[in-house]
Design a protein around this nucleic acid. Structure first.
Lengths: 162, 162
DNA sequence: GTTTTTGCAAATGATTTGCATGGAT
DNA sequence: ATCCATGCAAATCATTTGCAAAAAC
């Protein structure tokens, strides 16, 4: 979608939910759209490029409200600050790199229902399932290979010197 | 395992990891064992039954250390305080009730590897997958049925009165 | 006795809230 | 003109940290 079309779409959706269309809200939406998996802090920095005076608290309030009306989605990785994304409505999961912290979307190909078939649900009526993968992203895999190679070189030199 | 056997097991494991065995650590382990999915706050309350003087910060330090040596496991549900459990090592997931917040274990029957087979992993080397189910527990299902029944009664009486 | 643990106070980071003003409809 | 949204300050909540005293080895 073009930036213009996005803006119109957001405006329409805000109005549809009885929310007023303000430059602050549009700026927050733009920032979240521009940087998927952005933290509140990153969003604040980005929004301030356009609206220098906006306060931290306003951005938090706006983020919470946009989350309520499902225009954005909040994702809370364990142990770090919440991330916000414009991708909503579809059932997708996240993969976080345990080395650099980068978060990537993972499409759920199994439909909206729970993706596992566990034996023991204690009679609970399941509404949704969130899946968080932890792993090492491609960049960090390369970086680790490089480190291993360097460590081997150092070890070889130490063996020579002794 | 009997309380006594548990205590000996913990003692052995602490020693094996080079940790000193203190009454504080044992009390924390006991509290976590007694109440699976306990919050730090609940653990502090429980431990103070035995060790009235123990401080909040000590319990946090102990919990972090016990988590490091894998004697307990930390679970961070989105939007609420961390929970601690003694069940470690095996791959199990959690189901949280969106109404009362109760957390229950869900056995993962698919083995230790990622339980989904998503198409799009971005080349990431996956190490583990955490799954969080959201739903309504049996108690809350009953409570909701009761509420619906009462609402229908009220509606019926209103219809009669008009 | 030495080193790790604990106790205490104070700080931190993320996020929320109450109240007055300002802007969108 | 009306009422929701924003700005501001201060509070809250969970958790961490630095340093001195106490306890386990």
């Amino acid at each position: 979608m073009s930036p213009q079309a996005l803006k119109e779409s957001w405006t329409a959706q805000l109005r549809a939910k009885g929310r007023r269309v303000t430059k602050q809200r549009l700026a927050v939406l733009e920032a979240v759209q521009a940087n998927p998996h952005a933290t509140a802090d990153q969003i604040i920095q980005a929004v301030r490029q356009e609206l220098a005076g906006i306060t931290v608290q306003s951005v938090y309030v706006i983020l919470a409200d946009l989350t309520d009306i499902n225009l954005i989605q909040k994702f809370e990785p364990p142990g770090s600050a919440s991330l916000y994304e414009t991708r909503t409505g579809d059932n997708h999961h996240h993969a976080v790199c345990i080395r650099c912290g980068k978060v990537q979307d993972v499409d759920c190909t199994v439909g909206a229902a729970p993706c596992l078939t566990p034996q023991n649900f204690h009679g609970m009526a399941i509404i949704s399932a969130d899946v968080l993968y932890r792993g090492i992203c491609t960049d960090c895999q390369k970086a680790e290979e490089k480190e291993v190679a360097q460590a081997q070189q150092v070890a070889a030199q130490a063996a020579l010197a002794s």
